[in-house]
């Protein structure tokens, strides 16, 4: 299959008055079209930094990012980047939040408006179109954030711990929903998480990062039979095997 994203020797350090922090040491990665990649790693290892670099939001110090074989030097327009929290604008209604990306990109027209209404319908938000974010539950807020990301129809999705602020039940439900949505839409996804179970149930491939400064420690191809949902995967024996393998790889010190 076609290569969608390629990282070549990415290094990034943060320099401030206090000194410098080497976040990413050297990251090489190739992501295929329609692949679902999960990146797991201990907290503070540089996962968010890596996503920001892929999106073009911050430049790497060394190395290059390619999307569709083109070097990324600024925000790449066909990338949808979902930040670690929803950051819904409290002065905008659900509908107005979802259309933010289209507004910015000057793509707001009759057709895209209809598409937003359809997205809201699909995500069970139709009744909340004109509600303000403060009236929504955590799960619904996350759905709105996802709709906002998908409204501009990105080819590549970068998801930064999209479920980390949700309670367990909501998280499982949203994993199912996300899986269904993304499967239908044929997207390339790079999702960051610190939750191994979530990674196994969502991903085609899992990348384990070392603790800071991050390098890729190991890679796991996750292979379940086709057409099985994240929740069903959790009940298959293989799931536990993957879990134990990855657990051993993660540098988690309690």
């Amino acid at each position: 299959m076609k290569e969608k994203v390629r990282l070549e020797g990415i290094q990034k350090k943060y320099i401030s008055k206090k000194g410098e922090t080497l976040a990413l040491k050297e990251i090489n990665l190739s992501v295929k079209e329609n692949e679902f990649i999960c990146i797991v790693g201990p907290s503070g290892c540089g996962k968010t930094t890596l996503l920001s670099i892929i999106s073009g939001l911050i430049p790497p110090d060394i190395g290059k990012v390619y999307i569709n074989d083109q070097e990324v030097t600024q925000i790449y327009p066909r990338v949808g980047y979902m930040l670690q929290e929803d950051y819904l604008f409290e002065w905008r209604t659900v509908y107005e939040n979802v259309r933010l990306g289209l507004e910015i990109k000057g793509m707001l027209n009759g057709e895209t408006r209809d598409k937003i209404m359809m997205l809201l319908e699909n995500y069970g938000l139709a009744d909340f179109t004109n509600h303000y974010p403060r009236e929504l539950s955590g799960g619904m807020r996350q759905r709105v954030a996802l709709a906002r990301t998908l409204a501009t129809d990105p080819e590549i999705l970068l998801l930064d711990e999209p479920f980390s602020s949700l309670d367990y039940q909501t998280k499982l439900t949203l994993e199912e929903e996300m899986h269904n949505i993304l499967k239908r839409q044929q997207k390339t996804v790079i999702q960051v998480t610190h939750d191994i179970a979530e990674a196994i149930s969502m991903a085609d491939r899992i990348i384990v990062l070392s603790k800071r400064p991050a390098v890729i420690k190991s890679t796991f191809d996750i292979d379940f039979q086709e057409d099985i949902t994240p929740l069903q995967k959790r009940n298959i024996k293989k799931f536990q095997v993957y879990f134990n393998d990855i657990w051993k790889e993660l540098d988690i010190h309690v």
């Binding site: 999106s55 939001l57 925000i75 327009p77 990338v79 980047y81 930040l83 950051y87 933010l100 990306g101 910015i104 990109k105 501009t152």
Partner: peptide
């Protein structure tokens, strides 16, 4: 940052 990711 959110707006920047959208290319604002």
């Amino acid at each position: 940052k959110l707006l920047q990711t959208l290319g604002a």
